[in-house]
Amino acid sequence: MQVQTHVDINSEWGIVAARQAGRKLAREIGFGSVDQARITTAISELARNIYLYANKGQIYIEEVSNANKRGVKITAIDQGPGIKDVRKVMEDGFTTSGGLGAGLPGVRRLMDDFTIDSEVNNGTTISAIKWLR
């Protein structure tokens, strides 16, 4: 059976809980320490973005597989303000909160597959997969 877990993000503690859940699953699936750190960091970025920009949402963490590989998939869902210019927020250094603007472009590089779906006033769904090599 494949594992799926989700963490509600509505406080700073949710960010910590989500990354701990992600590290645990990544370790169980067999990821090495570098990929565990990549997956945990990606979760932390997505969870913090939910908390900062949408106040609340969920992080889903699940094992995925296809014919010849296994991996971990992170899905971040919120019903917040959405993102007007998706291309812009994927640029290194773009931030509306005085951050480093490293979160979203970072997640894309840390993970293998990355999709972002956002509608203004309706919310944002971002998913990312890391495959086990």
Binding site: A37, R38, T41, D92, A102, G106
Partner: peptide
């Protein structure tokens, strides 16, 4: 730690 250094560089930090 090595995984932290690698992740930071991946992130462009």
């Amino acid at each position: 730690q090595p995984p932290v250094a690698i992740t930071l560089i991946d992130m462009g930090i």
